[in-house]
Design a protein around this nucleic acid. Structure first.
Length: 480
RNA sequence: GUGGUUUUAGCUCAGUUGGUUAGAGCGCCUGAUUGUGGUUCAGGAGGUCGUGGGUUCGAGCCCCAUAUUCCACCCCA
């Protein structure tokens, strides 16, 4: 039998010991900040019912859902349906069998709902909304939760885009207050500051986009408009204005918009003026932006040091946002990743679709994998991150010296020092090579002489120095 | 989903118009040094050229299919 070549599904990766340590470093940093701001942990299942997931991420999102094949005879209901169609004169063309009549020739998309009822988690926000609705009677509102788990999207992989990736979310649900936005902005700042990643937080408000569409006279094309606006970074404001023209935007408003957008210092005063003739929703959006700016000023003073800017063109694709929206990009020219490493916003009615109306939520997300890529590229990981935690390795020469090491090994571990013994009888050189490869800082060498004197020759693998130590001396040396 | 791109030793990559036995660097193994790693020197092992078909006297190289990598669009973390 030919050996089978091992492979990995497209867009997935293995994480070796060193990778995991680095990923955990990021996760721990973010989690520490989440906790400091009073957020509580939550975990939800890898899979959700498709009824929970479908229709929440827009048309595009539905296409990217990983669907799980039903277990058992999943073709049965499809067969039954097929037979019914065959016997029914007024058949639905969508499900019409092919000329050959084979089930397999049915349109795949139409057949999906007969053979799949579960899907893999697409993000952490929708499962959270589902959780809130299902547990509304146990939850004390406002509810602050964080969640760090993998999600799956059937996207085409490319730079910074994977099919399996981790998100780290913090959301507050059951509170309208903009103090929540304030917390989330500070969390972004603090977490990325701890990770030493220079960032820019961009924020905007969906209510302003609503106002924009009204000013442009294209209320019915709100989604088209947001998609176009979202491209500003990529194609520039002029191209965006052209595209907006082509979908029928009012030329006067468009000209004003272009002027306002290009102001070097867009102040709340400009915003107020620009939206003065627009609807109440947009005015409320302006008020919210003004309020957040006030909060930030109270904390950081007028010379606000936070890397945050209001971006009138920030739109974001996810359809459920209704108020504030955020996006985080890396602010460093050396960084090749241009897409965002975090994003979020307020959704006034996410739980409504699950039968719990009038609960507002706001949240942010960190993209672990992209953060990892950025830190790797900018060399931001601390050097002391090693694949193994082992501090001391015991090296020996034969059965007798091996046994001699064991009580000391136990004492070190009891003292909380990560230690191991080289398990095989190999030349000392081999044992030290192993220690060196794993970047273990200390080697405790036990030979005939050491055993007689009840000591170890302790070698510092970094400096190369070595000295004779009792077990206690070894513990205090390494424990420092 | 659309268009392009990549795949040759453990890793990073050469490989001419199709022509004997497919190469390099690094890594790995052995020894110099049987009680000392990260430096040096000497020697050695390792490849069904992504996979399956086809063209040809002959294919790593040409054709088809498929998988995979990366990139752009779309969308997004």
């Amino acid at each position: 039998m030919a050996a089978q070549k091992p492979t990995l599904p497209k867009g997935t990766r293995d994480f070796g010991p060193a990778d995991v340590q680095k990923r955990k470093y990021i996760l721990n940093t973010i989690e520490t900040v989440f906790k400091k701001y009073g957020f509580m942990p939550l975990e939800t299942p890898t899979m959700e019912n498709l009824s929970t997931l479908e229709g929440k991420y827009g048309e595009e999102g539905d296409k990217l859902l990983f669907r799980i094949l039903d277990s058992g005879d999943y073709l049965k209901s499809l067969k039954e349906h097929n037979d019914k169609i065959l016997s029914d004169e007024s058949q639905d063309a969508t499900f019409a069998p092919s000329v050959s009549g084979k089930l397999i020739d049915l349109e795949a998309k139409a057949a999906t709902k007969f053979i799949s009822e579960k899907g893999l988690r697409y993000d952490l926000t929708v499962p959270f909304a589902r959780y809130v609705v299902m547990h509304r009677n146990e939850i004390t509102f406002p509810f602050r939760r964080y969640q760090m788990q993998p999600v799956w999207r059937a996207d085409r992989p490319q730079k910074g885009r994977y099919r399996e990736f981790w998100q780290c979310d913090a959301d507050v649900v059951g509170s309208d207050s903009l103090l929540n936005e304030l917390d989330l902005i500070q969390i972004y700042d603090e977490a990325f500051d701890s990770l030493k990643i220079p960032i820019q937080i961009k924020y905007n408000n969906r209510k302003l986009l609503d106002g924009l569409s009204q000013l442009f006279g294209i209320e019915d094309k709100l989604i088209d408009m947001t998609v176009i606006l979202d491209k500003t970074d990529k194609i520039g404001i002029d191209a965006v204005v052209e595209e907006l023209k082509s979908i029928g935007a009012n030329l006067d408003s468009l000209a004003k918009f272009q002027t306002v957008f290009q102001l070097p210092n867009l102040t709340t005063k400009h915003l107020n003026e620009f939206f003065s003739s627009s609807n109440e929703i947009a005015k409320k959006g302006v008020d919210e932006i003004v309020k957040i700016a006030e909060y930030l000023e109270v904390i950081y003073g007028s010379n606000n040091r936070l890397p945050i800017t209001h971006d009138l063109a920030l739109a974001r694709g996810l359809s459920y946002y209704t108020g504030s929206i955020f996006e985080v990009v890396v602010n460093d020219d050396r960084c090749s990743l241009k897409s965002s490493i975090g994003g979020g916003g307020r959704y006034d009615n996410l739980t409504g679709i699950f039968g719990l109306p009038n609960v507002s939520g706001v949240g942010i997300s960190f993209g672990l994998d992209r953060i990892y890529d950025v830190m790797e590229e900018l060399k931001l990981f601390p050097e002391q991150l090693r694949a193994t935690s082992t501090q001391v390795i015991f090296c020996h020469f034969d059965e007798a010296t091996q046994l001699y090491c064991l009580p000391a090994l136990k004492l070190l571990r009891d003292a909380g020092i990560a230690a191991e013994i080289f398990p095989d009888n190999k030349k000392l050189g081999k044992q030290l090579e192993y220690a060196n490869a794993l970047q273990i800082p200390f080697a405790a060498i036990a030979g005939e002489t050491e055993m007689q004197q009840q000591v170890f020759t302790v070698k510092n693998l970094i400096t190369g120095e070595q000295q004779s130590c009792s077990t206690q001396a070894l513990i205090s040396l390494v424990g420092q």
